[in-house]
Write a protein that binds this DNA or RNA. Structure first.
Lengths: 197, 197
DNA sequence: TGTACATCAGTGAACGCGCGTTCACTGATGTAC
DNA sequence: TGTACATCAGTGAACGCGCGTTCACTGATGTAC
């Protein structure tokens, strides 16, 4: 029967790590830094996880949940303003808030190119998160979209966000986001127009 | 007047590093390993570069040239078989060879999510490479494609390759590549069909 | 052509530092009586 | 309700290791005469 106190510490550690990996990358995250951010000293770490890799795996899972939660909130707000599910999703994912707010965003776009180089346990969790992202896209695409649309649009979202971040907080970076949004909506969001059209 | 011998060593170092960053990521590359791969000992490194970061920047530039060269070769082969410029480019970029051959491929897709966390000198070179990739896409798209197409298709290519690699060498990974190829060509490659249609 | 010398690319040992991991200890918590 | 004790989450010093970087030295190259 694990103590409540330990559970709370565990939560803080995983939370801190889930933000750290998105901010610094897997390779930029150290045990000591995460423990400090969780208000603990690094020595106690191995009472919570058998290894740094086990922490990274748990952090990736948590980051996926957290990113999905926040995206859902942004999406609900835009839905309330009348946007179609696809438009709401695309405008949230490719928002300027997501461009600059890596730490609270989607871990797939924050970490994609590092995933193939991680340990099997991290890759496994990451693959599940990629699959969930593809599934989420399938749910917001209109029925008229082809069978390849979910993969294509997810790829565009993840790729565009990374290219924009690589270009930095510049006009070019923001232009990448704008172009990607436009291109996706032009192609897939036809039934979002008012019914009269 | 630098000696010919030193120039040759310099080339080998940059070449080794350009492969290493694509294989292991920026953070996975060490000075000693690169020097060893170039057939030298690590002590001599600082006669060639002022710092590890300077090496990473040079390696990124070289990787961009190398990746572009190889993509051009694959594209020329497919062009010779009758493919349109866009089809040739897309089938080369999203080929199984590029999926598994990270080391000789496009450094943007190999490193995208690590770029924002690099030193200014590395980010600058990387941003140039992103821009070149966007320009290259602009040249293979048909004139009928909209103004956002180059950004959208580049994002899809980079995103799809990374998602496929994240899913590993599995049926799902290969399915991502196939779907992305199909979706891009369905949308933008209409003038590739025989003129009679 | 041959010898003496200067240059300098490359060697290998050493440095300080930060990292993941271990472990003996502490002190707060909560149960037994 | 109060005291004695067991448990165990967390502390902090220490470990081995690999890294980026430095530096005194070596030995091959090529020029001067």
């Amino acid at each position: 029967m694990a103590s409540r106190r330990k559970e709370l510490s565990h939560e803080r550690i995983v939370d801190a790590a889930s933000r750290a990996i998105r901010r610094e990358g897997y390779s930029g995250v150290g045990v000591a830094e995460v423990m400090k951010e969780a208000g603990l000293t690094h020595g106690g770490f191995y009472a919570h996880f058998p290894s740094r890799d086990a922490l990274l795996a748990a952090a990736m899972d948590r980051a996926g949940q957290d990113g999905a939660d926040r995206l859902s909130q942004g999406m609900a707000r835009r839905r309330a303003e009348g946007a179609s599910p696809l438009r709401a999703w695309v405008e949230t994912y490719l928002s300027e808030a997501h461009l600059t707010g890596c730490e609270g965003g989607c871990p797939v776009s924050a970490l994609a190119s590092e995933i193939p180089r991680q340990s099997p346990e991290v890759r496994e969790v990451a693959a599940t998160r990629v699959q969930r992202l593809l599934d989420a896209l399938g749910q917001v695409l209109p029925a008229s979209a082809g069978g390849h649309a979910a993969v294509a649009v997810t790829s565009t979202l993840v790729g565009a966000l990374q290219l924009a971040r690589a270009l930095g907080d510049t006009p070019q970076g923001r232009a990448v986001l704008a172009s990607a949004r436009q291109a996706i909506l032009d192609q897939y969001d036809h039934e979002d127009a008012s019914p009269a059209h």
